[in-house]
């Protein structure tokens, strides 16, 4: 499939610190790509480079084959960017904020009317359009920023935390819109809400210390973990002796504790019984077994242990 965004050995330094280290990857047109990772891992910095908000220190970013640094004006028409923080003009109404952007991109009145109606209806933003930006909640501001980014009909949408500050209803509406836009636009976003990423279910880039350590569809990422389950046993009193004896069971993977709850991973469900047997004389309050998800994968990866 044709590339929408291509990065070639892109690096970003802030002072002496390397934020992004020689990144090279491509994003196909019409795809929905999530970037996940720890705080301060360089996710938002990557979005800033993709949106033209900041320039890389080295390397090149291509948008539809155009070098972003050399063909600045052309590439900017193709991009819509929603930052994490609210950057609306507080003394303009939401509608004026959106129209201001439309004017900057020379969007004609009929296209503007059509788009603002479509997107504000989709996000239930209409009741707020005539309110000042400083008077509405963070979630409404975020939805306005999304409409503002879409008003010039960009081919690529770059979003930092699509559902930041939003209530449950707004989160649902926002994801419905994003999924609706997928295919027509390439969408790349950063989110800390792993449940949302799992339900959006598209390509995921896992970021760690300015590098991509995993890249692929959720199923592919979880392939290595498909046999694994996460187990949890809550004890009445998880003593240090008990924890150490459980930890030393060879079939248990990545054992750890939180208060009186003992967590571990295992390739087979029978592993659970190894732990139960070892703690049979202890009072157990709750038992839990579940298939692994993205959160468990990332927890394991960033703990530096890995499942394998």
């Amino acid at each position: 499939m044709e590339a929408s965004i291509t990065l070639k050995k892109v690096g970003k330094l802030i002072g002496d610190k390397t934020i992004l280290a020689g990144l090279s990857f491509g994003i196909e047109r019409g795809s929905l790509v999530a970037i996940v990772g720890l705080n301060d891992s360089g996710k938002s910095e990557l979005l800033k480079l993709l949106s033209g908000y900041e320039n890389p220190n080295y390397g090149q970013v291509f948008i539809h084959g155009l070098d972003m640094n050399k063909r600045r004006n052309e590439t900017r028409k193709l991009l819509g960017y929603v930052s994490f923080e609210n950057d609306l003009d507080p003394w303009l109404t939401l509608e004026q904020n959106i129209r201001f952007n439309a004017n900057l991109y020379s969007v004609d009145d009929s296209a503007y009317d059509k788009r603002i109606k479509k997107y504000s209806e989709a996000l239930n933003l209409e009741p707020y359009l005539n309110q000042f930006a400083y008077r509405v909640s963070g979630g409404v501001q975020k939805k306005t920023m999304l409409v503002r980014a879409l008003i010039h009909d960009p081919d690529i949408l770059v979003i930092d935390e699509p559902t930041g500050y939003m209530d449950a209803e707004s989160i649902r509406l926002t994801w419905d819109l994003i999924k609706d836009l997928k295919g027509d636009k390439s969408i790349i976003y950063v989110s800390n809400s792993l449940n949302e990423i799992e339900s959006a279910h598209d390509r995921i880039l896992v970021f760690h210390e300015g590098r991509i350590i995993m890249d692929g569809h959720l199923d592919k990422l979880l392939e290595s973990t498909l046999d694994y389950h996460q187990f949890q046993i809550e004890f009445d009193d998880l003593t240090d002796d008990l924890y150490n004896s459980l930890k030393n069971i060879s079939t248990l993977v990545s054992p750890n504790r939180m208060d009186n709850t003992f967590h571990f991973y295992g390739r087979k469900r029978t592993v659970f019984f190894d732990a139960i047997r070892a703690a049979s004389d202890q009072m157990m309050i709750d038992l839990n077994v579940k298939k692994l998800g993205l959160k468990d994968l990332l927890d394991s990866e960033f703990a530096g242990r890995g499942l394998e």
């Binding site: 004006n73 052309e74 930052s83 003009d89 900057l104 503002r148």
Partner: peptide, 18 residues
């Protein structure tokens, strides 16, 4: 004011104008 509060100005500079 809008620059130090990270409002509007950055969005303006992302539009297709020098």
């Amino acid at each position: 004011e809008l620059r130090i509060h990270r409002k509007v100005l950055i969005n303006l500079t992302l539009t297709p104008h020098s």
